[in-house]
Design a protein around this nucleic acid. Sequence first.
DNA 1: CCTGTCAGTTGGTATAGACCAGAAGTTTGC
DNA 2: GCAAACTTCTGGTCTATACCAACTGACAGG
Lengths: 236, 236
Amino acid sequence: MPDAYYLQLTEQLRYLIDEHAMQWAGKLPAERALAERFATTRVTLRQALAQLEGEGLIHRSNRRGWFISPARLVYDPTRDAGFNDYVRAQGRQPRTAVLKLETCPHLSAARVLGLPDDQPFHHIRRRRYVDDRAVLVESLWVVPERAPELLEMYTDQSLWGLLRGRWGHHLANRSIRMVSEALSPVDAEELFVAPGTAGLNICRAIFDDQQRPIEFDEEHWLHDSLCISVDLAGQQ
Amino acid sequence: MPDAYYLQLTEQLRYLIDEHAMQWAGKLPAERALAERFATTRVTLRQALAQLEGEGLIHRSNRRGWFISPARLVYDPTRDAGFNDYVRAQGRQPRTAVLKLETCPHLSAARVLGLPDDQPFHHIRRRRYVDDRAVLVESLWVVPERAPELLEMYTDQSLWGLLRGRWGHHLANRSIRMVSEALSPVDAEELFVAPGTAGLNICRAIFDDQQRPIEFDEEHWLHDSLCISVDLAGQQ
DNA sequence: CCTGTCAGTTGGTATAGACCAGAAGTTTGC
DNA sequence: GCAAACTTCTGGTCTATACCAACTGACAGG
């Protein structure tokens, strides 16, 4: 059915990857080598690779080459289990790098939380890893009144754990928004991928049980590292 | 910051689109014309167009050219408002085309609903439009015992309306799974787009209030036509 | 007025080659 | 031994060109 050569290539690569996954230790041979093996040009070969990248089967990192993508992380954005917890629950190794800590205003956060435009926030930006692969960057904007000394005490633990344990907040109400995106040059660089790589944007606004705004956060995931799963029981 | 020419092109196109959106009636000039205007080759131009496509700003249909994408449809997969209802609620025009009606077994549906592998289902496959643009194809597999004469009476109304109104089912429990994907050749053709176009796959398993399986459905959306939005209030 | 044909236009695919900058590996020099 | 310098390899970008198939629109025939 697929007559285009690059689509045939896609199939052959899929098979090849399946076959040699172990042998290659997750890294594909160089583009030039593959192009020669399939008697085609790098342009066409890259078309096939891009196809597999879109499917989430392979990805590239920096300029180091093409790698076989690990299984997607199953993630329920409606639950507030911490990142570390559910990564470990799936037998994987989580890691977090803090990129920025500051206090400053942020327009979208203010708008979404229903606060004045010049409202300052505690801003935390961090990169998260699964098994040493960077899979998302996120920015959190926390209303300072709800967590005054946050920036002094925050290292890389669970933020929601802190909010609950240290300040006793109930994260009762939330609105979540998800859109597919192409990663911005900034986000892409922080995730060590090419600009324009496909991503998934998840924004959350969190309020407590009295409808007071607590925080707004925006996550940028690599599209291939995520499987969103939601279970709803009962009413409605 | 963007030094690559195709990234500069992306910016210029973005500006151009913004400027001439009305004048062009949503359709971009031909690739060859744009390539000439920016003094580059079609290859490089297409790289820039692909970038904007990834962002969801433009899309292509068949081989007819590049079009400016309309606003995303806001969609809450956890609610069971019918497609027609929420499309109209956003001031848009819904339409549905039924592609297939049959009764046959389906492995994944059976597995997800916890039924034997050879369990037959009423299968409905349909394509849905927003403002005359095809934005998704979906397959529904309904357990025949829950809706015996479904295929005889189904035209293109709301399935959930039918299940509630005709057979009195309460769609009480559901599990939802979302993954980004590259559209398969079949799905792509049914949506009039190129194979490998970015998409979003949404699967749902629905049970009634006694945990009896009712139906399984799988939707394939164009990635740029969708904004998932979930509101959660109260407990947990 | 409708219909079917034909030519031109457009996107889709592909070739062949080139240069650059970053990453990795190797050698050199202290 | 270790760090710095250099070389090689690799992906990222770009040019120029070509052919095909599908769509469009105009024209001819019933």
